[in-house]
Nucleic acid binder design. Structure first.
Lengths: 210, 210
DNA sequence: GACGTGACTAAGCGCTTGCTTAGCATCTTT
DNA sequence: AAAGATGCTAAGCAAGCGCTTAGTCACGTC
C-alpha cells in the first residue's frame, strides 16, 4: 500500500532515488498544508529527516521541487483523462469514466491536487508554460467528449465550453475541500460526482442510474 | 461604477476612511495576484501610494488586512445566499437565484473570492474560527434548499450533502479561473451555471428552460 | 504664537529566508 | 592502499521580511 501522494504522482512507479522521493513527498506535504511561499526549505529538509543543505544535492532550488510536483501531477492527470476517453464505449460512458476517475484522483491525492491547481502562479515561467499546455489538453479532452455526446444527441448543453469548465471545475475543487476525514471514500464520491456530471450534461435519465 | 472588489466587499457601502479602503483594496489585489505569503507589506503600501510604515497606522498587521478581507467577504457571501433563500417562491426558484448570484459574485469579485477561499490557512486562529462558522451557515443554507426541494419532490439527488458540496464548489471554483478577459460576462455565466445546477439536482426539465 | 493632534515618512532593527561554502565520513575504483 | 566520487552536515552569507522608532508637516484650538 503506497501512500496517496506517491500514487497520485507516479501511478506506474517513479524513477527517482529513495532520498529524492522522500524530499519530494515532504515538499508535497508542506506545500499542501501551508502553501508554497509559507514553506521553508528547512521545513522540507527537516520533514525528510535531513539537514537544510542536503536538499540542494537532489534539487537545484525550492522552485524545482514545485515544478517537479506540478509537472508530474499534471502528466498523471492528463494520462488518466485520456485513458477515460479511450476506454468508454460511447460518450456517456466515456464521460462517466472521466468524471469518476478525475474525482477519485483529486480526492485521494488532494495534497498533490492542491499544489497542482493552486500554486501555478509560483512556477518559474517555462515550467508554467509546459504545465499550461497540459492543462489545455485536459480541458480539450473533456470538451471533445461533450461535443461528441452532443452531436450524438446524448447530451444537451447550452454552451459546451461552459459545460466543460464546470465538469473539470467540479473535480478540481475536490482537492480544496477533501480530507482523509471526509465521510465519503474517494470511490464513493467519484461515483456520485459521475452521476451529477451526467445529469448536468442532460444525459438521458435511463443512462444514469440511481 | 465602483470597482468589482469594492462591490464584492461592501455591497451596501463601507465605513472605513478613504486611505484605509485604498490600502485594503491594494491588499486584495496583491493577495489575489501573488498569494498572501508572497505579498509584502511594502507591496501593499506602495500600491496604495504610501510608505511602508503608513500601513501600520491603519491596520495593526498584515494578517489584520487579510482577516478584514476574509470576514467582510464571507459576510457578503452569506448575505447574498440568505437573500436568495428568502426571495424565491419555491425551492427551484430559490436554488436558481442562489446559484446565479453566488456565481456572479465569485466571477465579478474573483480577486476577493480567491482570497476568501484559498487563504483560510493563513488566518489568525480566532479569525479563522469566525469565518469557519460563516462558511457552515452558507453550506447549510444550500443544504436546506436542497432538502426542501427533495421533500417537495422537485429535486432527486442520491446524497443531499454531496449535492450541496457540488453546488457551492462549482461557484467557489469560479473565482479560481475567472478573469476579466473571460468570454462570458458574470451574469451570463451565472445564468448558465444556474441551469447546470438545477439539472444536476434533477429538477423537472420544464422548470429549467433552455 | 505656543501647543496638541493626526497622517505621514526615512531609517533601520532583529530575524528569517533561499542558498553556498568548506569539510567529513563512507563507498568504489584502480 | 591511494584516489576519487558520493551523500551528507555545520556554519554562515546576503537579501528581504514584518514591524518599530523617531521625527516631520499641516492643521485646528486656546
Amino acid at each position: 500500500m503506497t501512500d496517496p501522494a506517491t500514487a497520485a504522482l507516479w501511478p506506474g512507479g517513479g524513477e527517482r532515488t529513495e532520498t529524492a522521493r522522500r524530499l519530494l513527498l515532504a515538499a508535497v506535504d508542506s506545500f499542501a498544508r501551508r502553501g508554497y511561499h509559507a514553506t521553508t526549505t528547512r521545513d522540507i529538509a527537516t520533514a525528510a529527516g535531513m539537514s537544510p543543505a542536503a536538499l540542494y544535492i537532489h534539487y537545484p532550488s525550492k522552485a524545482a521541487l514545485l515544478a517537479e510536483i506540478s509537472r508530474t501531477g499534471h502528466r498523471a492527470t492528463l494520462e488518466l483523462v485520456e485513458r477515460a476517453e479511450a476506454a468508454g464505449a460511447d460518450p456517456v460512458e466515456r464521460m462517466r469514466a472521466l468524471a469518476e476517475s478525475f474525482t477519485v484522483w483529486h480526492a485521494r491525492g488532494h495534497t498533490v491536487g492542491r499544489i497542482v491547481n493552486n500554486e501555478l502562479h509560483a512556477l518559474p515561467e517555462e515550467d508554467f508554460a509546459a504545465v499550461a499546455e497540459l492543462r489545455i489538453r485536459i480541458e480539450e479532452t473533456v470538451l471533445r467528449i461533450i461535443a461528441d455526446g452532443a452531436a450524438a444527441g446524448l447530451f444537451r448543453v447550452p454552451d459546451q465550453r461552459t459545460a466543460a469548465r464546470a465538469v473539470t471545475s467540479l473535480g478540481i475543487d475536490v482537492s480544496r475541500w477533501y480530507t482523509e476525514r471526509s465521510s465519503e471514500s474517494p470511490e464513493e464520491l467519484g461515483r456520485r460526482y459521475g452521476q451529477l456530471v451526467l445529469r448536468m450534461l442532460g444525459a438521458p435519465d435511463g443512462r444514469i442510474g440511481d
